[in-house]
Protein backbone atom coordinates (compact mmCIF):
# COMPACT_ATOMS: atom_id res chain seq x y z
CA UNK A 1 0.00 0.00 0.00
CA UNK A 2 1.31 3.46 -0.90
CA UNK A 3 1.75 6.12 1.71
CA UNK A 4 -1.56 7.83 2.38
CA UNK A 5 -3.37 6.00 -0.28
CA UNK A 6 -6.94 6.30 0.92
CA UNK A 7 -7.87 9.37 2.90
CA UNK A 8 -11.57 8.54 2.57
CA UNK A 9 -12.72 6.07 5.19
CA UNK A 10 -16.18 4.62 5.48
CA UNK A 11 -17.96 4.88 8.82
CA UNK A 12 -17.28 1.21 9.46
CA UNK A 13 -13.62 1.63 8.78
CA UNK A 14 -13.41 4.64 11.04
CA UNK A 15 -15.06 2.61 13.75
CA UNK A 16 -12.58 -0.19 13.25
CA UNK A 17 -9.61 2.14 13.59
CA UNK A 18 -11.23 3.91 16.51
CA UNK A 19 -11.75 0.61 18.32
CA UNK A 20 -8.45 -1.01 17.52
CA UNK A 21 -6.04 1.91 17.27
CA UNK A 22 -7.56 4.89 19.07
CA UNK A 23 -4.13 6.43 19.56
CA UNK A 24 -3.67 6.68 15.78
CA UNK A 25 -7.14 7.85 14.92
CA UNK A 26 -6.40 11.58 14.69
CA UNK A 27 -3.48 11.00 12.40
CA UNK A 28 -5.54 8.69 10.23
CA UNK A 29 -8.38 11.15 9.99
CA UNK A 30 -5.98 13.96 9.06
CA UNK A 31 -3.60 12.22 6.78
CA UNK A 32 -5.19 8.96 5.84
CA UNK A 33 -4.02 5.41 6.29
CA UNK A 34 -0.36 4.68 5.77
CA UNK A 35 1.58 1.47 5.62
CA UNK A 36 2.43 1.53 9.31
CA UNK A 37 -1.24 1.83 10.22
CA UNK A 38 -2.13 -0.97 7.92
CA UNK A 39 0.48 -3.33 9.29
CA UNK A 40 -0.52 -2.54 12.82
CA UNK A 41 -4.13 -3.19 11.99
CA UNK A 42 -3.23 -6.54 10.53
CA UNK A 43 -1.31 -7.54 13.62
CA UNK A 44 -4.11 -6.45 15.88
CA UNK A 45 -6.68 -8.18 13.76
CA UNK A 46 -4.91 -11.51 13.67
CA UNK A 47 -2.70 -11.40 10.61
CA UNK A 48 -2.45 -12.73 7.13
CA UNK A 49 -3.60 -16.27 7.40
CA UNK A 50 -6.85 -15.10 8.86
CA UNK A 51 -8.27 -13.89 5.59
CA UNK A 52 -7.56 -17.19 3.93
CA UNK A 53 -9.12 -19.09 6.76
CA UNK A 54 -12.26 -17.01 6.94
CA UNK A 55 -13.28 -18.04 3.50
CA UNK A 56 -13.28 -21.75 4.32
CA UNK A 57 -14.66 -21.38 7.75
CA UNK A 58 -17.58 -19.27 6.64
CA UNK A 59 -18.88 -21.69 4.06
CA UNK A 60 -18.03 -24.97 5.64
CA UNK A 61 -18.72 -24.78 9.28
CA UNK A 62 -21.53 -22.47 10.05
CA UNK A 63 -25.12 -23.10 10.67
CA UNK A 64 -27.44 -22.83 7.74
CA UNK A 65 -30.23 -20.53 8.73
CA UNK A 66 -33.52 -22.34 8.48
CA UNK A 67 -35.88 -21.28 5.74
CA UNK A 68 -38.78 -22.03 8.01
CA UNK A 69 -38.22 -19.30 10.52
CA UNK A 70 -40.45 -20.03 13.45
CA UNK A 71 -40.72 -16.35 14.38
CA UNK A 72 -44.33 -15.78 13.59
CA UNK A 73 -45.42 -19.29 14.26
CA UNK A 74 -47.26 -18.87 17.53
CA UNK A 75 -48.52 -22.02 19.20
CA UNK A 76 -52.27 -21.55 19.70
CA UNK A 77 -52.12 -22.72 23.25
CA UNK A 78 -50.01 -19.82 24.52
CA UNK A 79 -51.13 -18.66 27.89
CA UNK A 80 -50.67 -15.14 29.15
CA UNK A 81 -49.43 -14.13 25.73
CA UNK A 82 -47.48 -10.90 25.59
CA UNK A 83 -46.63 -9.05 22.41
CA UNK A 84 -43.25 -7.44 22.47
CA UNK A 85 -41.67 -4.98 20.08
CA UNK A 86 -37.96 -4.36 20.42
CA UNK A 87 -34.85 -3.93 18.38
CA UNK A 88 -32.59 -6.93 17.96
CA UNK A 89 -29.22 -6.41 16.29
CA UNK A 90 -30.47 -3.22 14.74
CA UNK A 91 -33.66 -4.70 13.33
CA UNK A 92 -37.13 -4.00 14.64
CA UNK A 93 -38.75 -7.25 15.76
CA UNK A 94 -42.22 -7.95 17.07
CA UNK A 95 -43.19 -11.26 18.59
CA UNK A 96 -45.90 -12.77 20.72
CA UNK A 97 -44.73 -15.02 23.49
CA UNK A 98 -45.73 -16.86 26.63
CA UNK A 99 -45.10 -14.45 29.52
CA UNK A 100 -42.74 -17.05 30.98
CA UNK A 101 -40.38 -17.01 28.04
CA UNK A 102 -36.93 -15.67 28.75
CA UNK A 103 -35.05 -13.44 26.38
CA UNK A 104 -32.59 -16.29 25.86
CA UNK A 105 -35.26 -18.77 24.79
CA UNK A 106 -36.90 -16.14 22.62
CA UNK A 107 -33.68 -15.41 20.78
CA UNK A 108 -32.92 -19.08 20.33
CA UNK A 109 -36.31 -20.60 19.70
CA UNK A 110 -38.24 -17.77 18.08
CA UNK A 111 -35.81 -15.36 16.46
CA UNK A 112 -33.43 -17.93 15.00
CA UNK A 113 -30.52 -16.39 16.88
CA UNK A 114 -28.89 -19.43 18.44
CA UNK A 115 -25.54 -17.75 19.08
CA UNK A 116 -26.45 -16.98 22.69
CA UNK A 117 -26.05 -20.15 24.70
CA UNK A 118 -27.85 -21.78 27.59
CA UNK A 119 -25.16 -23.03 29.92
CA UNK A 120 -27.14 -23.06 33.15
CA UNK A 121 -30.37 -21.07 32.75
CA UNK A 122 -29.86 -19.71 36.28
CA UNK A 123 -27.44 -16.84 36.05
CA UNK A 124 -24.46 -18.93 37.08
CA UNK A 125 -22.31 -19.16 33.96
CA UNK A 126 -22.58 -16.13 31.66
CA UNK A 127 -22.96 -18.13 28.43
CA UNK A 128 -26.20 -16.27 27.67
CA UNK A 129 -24.70 -12.79 28.03
CA UNK A 130 -26.15 -10.23 25.60
CA UNK A 131 -26.07 -6.46 25.52
CA UNK A 132 -29.37 -4.74 26.33
CA UNK A 133 -29.54 -0.96 26.04
CA UNK A 134 -25.76 -0.91 25.99
CA UNK A 135 -25.06 -2.95 29.10
CA UNK A 136 -24.22 -6.61 29.45
CA UNK A 137 -26.93 -8.72 31.05
CA UNK A 138 -27.89 -12.37 31.37
CA UNK A 139 -30.60 -13.24 28.89
CA UNK A 140 -31.57 -16.36 30.86
CA UNK A 141 -32.74 -14.24 33.79
CA UNK A 142 -34.42 -11.63 31.61
CA UNK A 143 -38.05 -12.05 30.64
CA UNK A 144 -38.51 -11.30 26.97
CA UNK A 145 -41.64 -9.42 27.98
CA UNK A 146 -39.53 -6.93 29.88
CA UNK A 147 -37.55 -6.07 26.73
CA UNK A 148 -40.31 -4.10 25.05
CA UNK A 149 -38.89 -0.91 23.63
CA UNK A 150 -35.29 -1.92 24.32
CA UNK A 151 -32.36 -2.63 22.05
CA UNK A 152 -30.77 -6.05 22.21
CA UNK A 153 -27.40 -6.89 20.75
CA UNK A 154 -26.24 -10.49 20.47
CA UNK A 155 -23.10 -12.16 19.18
CA UNK A 156 -24.72 -12.27 15.75
CA UNK A 157 -24.90 -8.48 15.71
CA UNK A 158 -21.27 -7.69 16.43
CA UNK A 159 -19.65 -8.24 13.05
CA UNK A 160 -20.26 -5.64 10.37
CA UNK A 161 -21.11 -7.67 7.34
CA UNK A 162 -18.09 -9.86 6.73
CA UNK A 163 -15.86 -7.83 8.98
CA UNK A 164 -15.46 -9.20 12.44
CA UNK A 165 -15.62 -7.01 15.50
CA UNK A 166 -12.11 -6.34 16.85
CA UNK A 167 -12.94 -8.42 19.90
CA UNK A 168 -13.87 -11.37 17.70
CA UNK A 169 -10.61 -10.96 15.80
CA UNK A 170 -8.65 -10.86 19.02
CA UNK A 171 -10.33 -14.00 20.34
CA UNK A 172 -9.38 -15.76 17.11
CA UNK A 173 -5.79 -14.61 17.23
CA UNK A 174 -5.29 -15.50 20.87
CA UNK A 175 -7.30 -18.73 20.70
CA UNK A 176 -9.65 -17.41 23.37
CA UNK A 177 -11.73 -20.57 23.35
CA UNK A 178 -11.66 -24.27 22.82
CA UNK A 179 -15.11 -25.80 22.54
CA UNK A 180 -16.50 -22.35 21.80
CA UNK A 181 -19.70 -22.76 23.78
CA UNK A 182 -18.97 -19.99 26.28
CA UNK A 183 -17.50 -17.79 23.55
CA UNK A 184 -20.51 -15.73 22.46
CA UNK A 185 -21.10 -14.83 26.10
CA UNK A 186 -17.43 -14.09 26.72
CA UNK A 187 -17.24 -11.83 23.68
CA UNK A 188 -20.45 -9.91 24.42
CA UNK A 189 -19.30 -9.50 27.99
CA UNK A 190 -15.87 -8.30 26.87
CA UNK A 191 -17.27 -5.81 24.41
CA UNK A 192 -19.51 -4.24 27.05
CA UNK A 193 -16.72 -4.35 29.60
CA UNK A 194 -14.61 -2.02 27.48
CA UNK A 195 -17.43 0.48 27.61
CA UNK A 196 -17.65 0.16 31.37
CA UNK A 197 -13.93 0.89 31.58
CA UNK A 198 -14.41 3.99 29.47
CA UNK A 199 -17.09 5.13 31.88
CA UNK A 200 -14.67 4.62 34.74
CA UNK A 201 -16.45 1.75 36.45
CA UNK A 202 -14.65 0.15 39.36
CA UNK A 203 -14.35 -3.47 40.45
CA UNK A 204 -13.66 -5.35 43.68
CA UNK A 205 -9.94 -5.44 42.86
CA UNK A 206 -9.72 -1.72 42.06
CA UNK A 207 -8.42 -0.72 45.49
CA UNK A 208 -9.08 2.88 46.42
CA UNK A 209 -12.48 3.83 45.04
CA UNK A 210 -12.52 7.44 46.14
CA UNK A 211 -10.55 9.35 43.47
CA UNK A 212 -12.67 11.07 40.81
CA UNK A 213 -14.11 8.77 38.19
CA UNK A 214 -12.68 8.77 34.65
CA UNK A 215 -11.77 6.25 31.93
CA UNK A 216 -9.66 3.48 33.43
CA UNK A 217 -6.85 1.43 32.03
CA UNK A 218 -7.41 -2.14 33.09
CA UNK A 219 -4.69 -4.42 34.37
CA UNK A 220 -4.99 -8.13 33.57
CA UNK A 221 -6.14 -8.64 37.14
CA UNK A 222 -8.95 -6.12 36.61
CA UNK A 223 -9.99 -7.89 33.42
CA UNK A 224 -10.03 -11.22 35.26
CA UNK A 225 -12.28 -9.92 38.02
CA UNK A 226 -14.61 -8.16 35.60
CA UNK A 227 -14.89 -11.27 33.41
CA UNK A 228 -15.46 -13.65 36.30
CA UNK A 229 -19.16 -13.86 35.51
CA UNK A 230 -18.26 -15.80 32.37
CA UNK A 231 -17.25 -19.33 33.17
CA UNK A 232 -15.10 -21.18 30.65
CA UNK A 233 -14.97 -24.85 31.50
CA UNK A 234 -12.38 -25.46 28.80
CA UNK A 235 -10.11 -23.11 30.72
CA UNK A 236 -9.29 -20.64 27.96
CA UNK A 237 -8.99 -17.89 30.57
CA UNK A 238 -5.40 -16.71 29.94
CA UNK A 239 -6.09 -16.46 26.21
CA UNK A 240 -9.34 -14.60 26.75
CA UNK A 241 -7.59 -12.10 29.00
CA UNK A 242 -4.87 -11.60 26.39
CA UNK A 243 -7.50 -10.97 23.71
CA UNK A 244 -9.38 -8.43 25.81
CA UNK A 245 -6.19 -6.70 26.90
CA UNK A 246 -5.13 -6.35 23.30
CA UNK A 247 -8.34 -4.66 22.25
CA UNK A 248 -8.55 -2.60 25.43
CA UNK A 249 -4.98 -1.33 25.36
CA UNK A 250 -4.76 -1.05 21.59
CA UNK A 251 -1.40 -2.71 21.89
CA UNK A 252 -0.60 -6.06 20.41
CA UNK A 253 -0.23 -8.70 23.12
CA UNK A 254 2.53 -11.13 22.32
CA UNK A 255 1.74 -14.79 21.81
CA UNK A 256 4.46 -17.10 23.02
CA UNK A 257 4.74 -20.69 21.93
CA UNK A 258 7.59 -22.19 23.85
CA UNK A 259 9.43 -25.37 23.16
CA UNK A 260 12.83 -26.64 24.21
Amino acid sequence: MDEHESPELTEDEKQLFADLMPEDLTEIMDKGVNRRHFLKLMTLAGGGILAAQSAVAEQVLTRSSSETLPTELVPDSLENAVTVACKVNGKARTFTIDSRMTLLDTLRERLDLTGSKKGCDHGQCGACTVIVNGSRVLSCLTLAASCAGKTVQTIEGLAQGNRLHPMQEAFLKHDGFQCGFCTPGQICSAVALLDEAKKGHASYVTGNLRPPVGPVKLSNEEIRERMSGNICRCGAYPNIVAAIQEVHSGQSVEQVFRSV
Binding site: T129, L141, T142, S189, S203
Partner: peptide, 9 residues
Amino acid sequence: GASGQIRNM
Protein backbone atom coordinates in the same frame (compact mmCIF):
# COMPACT_ATOMS: atom_id res chain seq x y z
CA GLY B 1 -21.22 -9.55 44.91
CA ALA B 2 -22.31 -11.64 41.94
CA SER B 3 -20.88 -10.67 38.53
CA GLY B 4 -20.73 -7.64 36.24
CA GLN B 5 -23.77 -8.83 34.32
CA ILE B 6 -25.84 -9.53 37.42
CA ARG B 7 -24.97 -6.19 39.00
CA ASN B 8 -26.12 -4.50 35.79
CA MET B 9 -29.50 -6.15 36.22
